[in-house]
């Protein structure tokens, strides 16, 4: 089946037991969309989110591979979708799935996965077969392509493909602070996987209000001024280097610090820091947090 026939709004039925009409149970519909909010479309600064070190960002593409949407309440569960779908967040908010016949009740545990696609993964919006093949070949679930600009340092292109595999579970709704969703009787719950891209540029995994920074990224660009995920491994968090090749310091001469999570990093470099931060970009219905686990180990 070609991807062209799998359009926005296509109906996918729940695959587990007790769907519409089973024992007369009331049901409703769940519509799932994915959003990067305004940043993928307008770049950074976006609203009041801006880089503290003066950089601005324009995105050409932000490819994300989402796989699966699961509901659970007590010992009852629903696997609503399991196949991998690739979207481009620069297309704006995208509707991924519409599920009819979902038992009408609260489902406290909402789960989804971000993991690498296969060459035959479903595509939404402007995503091409070549885009998906490139991600599948590289084993990456997230790829952002764009340009960072600084009034003094100029333009730096980036093509950062992150091999993360994340299982988000027990998602809390950012709309009302409750666990999961409520499917209304004969109604529709419009839900959203919200990706917070600013996390990728945070300088702290612990601070209440981290800053967004980019110079440490620009400093490891190759001779073609292109920044890749591999380049970031050369930035030692204990001794960050600036574009001028000197220690990266603030206005008072203190070293710029990227603060790892309390659970540590496998390596003390900017690549490992970015991967840890990428694990947390998936949110739910706006600002709602989830629990994040390594999907490959889940």
């Amino acid at each position: 089946m070609s991807n062209e026939s799998q359009k926005f709004g296509s109906v996918v039925l729940a695959t587990s037991a007790c769907i519409a009409g089973c024992g007369g149970e009331s049901t409703g519909t769940v519509v799932v969309e994915v959003s990067g909010e305004e940043a993928p479309v307008v770049g950074y600064p976006a609203g009041d989110i801006a880089f503290i070190d003066g950089w601005s960002i324009d995105f050409d593409h932000i490819f994300v591979a989402v796989e699966g949407f699961y509901l659970a309440e007590g010992d009852r569960s629903q696997t609503l979708e399991a196949d991998n779908t690739v979207i481009d967040l620069t297309d704006g908010d995208q509707e991924l799935w519409m599920f009819a016949g979902v038992p009408a009740q609260r489902w406290s545990d909402v789960e989804y996965v971000i993991t690498e696609p296969t060459a035959t993964s479903r595509r939404v919006g402007t995503v091409t077969e070549a885009d998906v093949t490139a991600m599948a070949t590289a084993g990456v679930s997230f790829r952002m392509i764009g340009t960072a600009t600084h009034p003094t340092h100029g333009d730096y292109d980036f093509d950062v493909a992150i091999p993360m595999s994340v299982h988000a579970s027990e998602c809390v709704s950012g709309r009302d602070g409750t666990d999961g969703i409520v499917v209304p009787v004969n109604g529709t719950h419009q839900t959203q996987i919200t990706l917070h891209l600013d996390h990728l540029f945070f300088d702290s995994a612990r601070a209440e209000e981290p800053n967004l920074r980019f110079e440490a990224w620009a400093a490891v660009a190759g001779d073609d001024d292109l920044i890749t995920y591999a380049d970031l491994a050369s930035q030692n968090l204990a001794d960050l280097v600036g574009i001028d090749g000197m220690p990266l310091v603030d206005d008072e001469g203190a070293p710029i610090a990227y603060e790892p999570p309390a659970s540590g990093l496998p390596m003390q470099n900017l690549q490992a820091f970015l991967l840890a931060e990428a694990f947390t970009i998936g949110h739910f219905e706006g600002e709602g947090h989830c629990d994040y686990h390594d999907h490959d180990a889940h």
Partner: peptide
């Protein structure tokens, strides 16, 4: 002190679970 490279290196080191 925290504003020195040694302080930053120590911060990262002391917090490392390994």
């Amino acid at each position: 002190t925290p504003s020195t490279q040694v302080g930053l290196a120590w911060d990262l080191g002391l917090r490392d679970p390994t």
